[in-house]
Amino acid sequence: MNTIDPSLYLSNQKTTREPSPTLDKDGFLKILMTQMQNQDPTQPMDSQAMIEQMTSLTSLEQMMNISSSIDNLVQSQLISPVIQYSHMIGKEVTYQAFDPDTGESLGEKTSAVVAVSQKEGWAILELENGEKIYADAALKVSTSDAKEDAAE
């Protein structure tokens, strides 16, 4: 008959227990079952207290699930700047132009938005005249029809 050497089995087991900082439903049920198994038979655990504990745990778990769901909803609502400003494609924007070498003001310029890109979390409007400006640098936004109507 073959026997298993218990020293080999025991050497593979954890020697220290790592406590968890949180108590989930499974942990609570394990504690509850241990309490019930080790209770004094002459003074059994109060069933009302047990029900209140389980109700509290269930309520807490549901609130945590709701909180997690709200966090997920908020994260999904954070829209990228490209999507947020995509409605500006085809619109005319007026902006303050600056000389790239001297930094001097060149006055206001107007050009149509042909694309929207993103740089370091900021929306960049790519214009028909080849320039790129930050979306928040636009002084005025209008439809290109307004420019054509004014020319007539």
Rank of each mutant, 00 (worst) to 15 (best):
L10W: 09
T22F: 11
K132E: 07
L139D: 01
A151K: 10
Q53G: 09
Q96H: 11
G107R: 09
V141E: 03
L8W: 12
Q43P: 00
V113H: 03
E120S: 13
I66S: 09
T16E: 15
W122K: 14
L23H: 00
T58R: 12
D40I: 02
A137Y: 11
Q43Y: 03
D40C: 02
E18Y: 09
I51K: 09
M63N: 15
W122Y: 15
L139E: 04
E61H: 07
S56I: 02
E148M: 04
Q96L: 13
L32Q: 07
V93D: 01
T42C: 00
E152Y: 00
T58S: 14
Q75T: 12
G107D: 07
Y134D: 04
N38V: 04
M1D: 13
M64K: 15
S144N: 07
L23D: 03
S80G: 12
T102W: 05
L78N: 09
L29Y: 08
D149R: 01
S11M: 11
V116N: 07
G27S: 06
L73F: 14
A137D: 13
K147Y: 11
L29K: 04
Y9H: 11
I4M: 13
S144P: 02
Q43V: 10
I70Q: 12
T22W: 07
Q96N: 13
P81F: 02
S144E: 10
E108V: 13
A49V: 01
I133V: 06
N12E: 14
A112K: 15
S76E: 09
T16S: 15
K25M: 09
D99A: 07
